Amino acid sequence: MANFDEKSEIIPCNTPWGKWLQTVEDVFVEVLVPEGTKCKEISINIQTKTIKVVVSGKELFSGDLYKAVHADEAVWTLEDKKLIRICLPKVHSTAGNCWKSLLKSQYEADPSTFDQMEQKLTLEKFQNENPGFDFSGASITGNYHDGGPKLG
Results as ranks from 00 to 15, higher is better:
residue 82 K to M: 12
residue 43 S to F: 07
residue 142 G to V: 04
residue 8 S to V: 11
residue 61 F to S: 03
residue 100 K to Q: 15
residue 77 T to I: 07
residue 11 I to S: 02
residue 109 A to K: 06
residue 97 N to S: 13
residue 40 K to W: 04
residue 23 T to W: 01
residue 11 I to F: 01
residue 10 I to K: 11
residue 141 T to H: 06
residue 111 P to C: 04
residue 32 L to F: 08
residue 134 D to G: 04
residue 27 V to P: 03
residue 13 C to M: 10
residue 95 A to V: 05
residue 74 A to M: 02
residue 55 V to A: 03
residue 123 L to K: 10
residue 75 V to I: 11
residue 36 G to K: 11
residue 110 D to K: 05
residue 25 E to N: 11
residue 138 A to R: 00
residue 8 S to A: 10
residue 53 V to Y: 01
residue 73 E to K: 14
residue 19 K to F: 11
residue 138 A to K: 01
residue 1 M to W: 09
residue 76 W to Q: 02
residue 91 V to I: 06
residue 108 E to P: 00
residue 24 V to A: 09
residue 25 E to H: 10
residue 127 Q to N: 05
residue 82 K to Q: 15
residue 70 H to P: 00
residue 25 E to R: 12
residue 125 K to V: 01
residue 32 L to T: 07
residue 88 L to E: 02
residue 83 L to I: 13
residue 150 K to N: 07
residue 76 W to P: 01
residue 63 G to S: 09
residue 87 C to Y: 06
residue 94 T to K: 14
residue 34 P to F: 02
residue 101 S to K: 10
residue 37 T to L: 03
residue 115 D to F: 02
residue 150 K to G: 03
residue 93 S to L: 02
residue 63 G to H: 05
residue 93 S to H: 12
residue 4 F to V: 12
residue 107 Y to C: 06
residue 33 V to Q: 08
residue 40 K to C: 08
residue 147 G to Q: 05
residue 68 A to D: 14
residue 31 V to C: 09
residue 23 T to C: 05
residue 32 L to I: 11
residue 80 D to G: 05
residue 55 V to K: 02
residue 119 Q to F: 00
residue 126 F to N: 03
residue 101 S to F: 04
residue 148 G to A: 02
residue 151 L to C: 04
residue 64 D to S: 13
residue 106 Q to K: 13
residue 77 T to K: 15
residue 62 S to R: 12
residue 65 L to T: 03
residue 116 Q to E: 15
residue 106 Q to M: 07
residue 77 T to E: 14
residue 96 G to A: 09
residue 8 S to W: 08
residue 104 K to R: 13
residue 69 V to F: 00
residue 7 K to S: 10
residue 5 D to K: 12
residue 14 N to C: 04
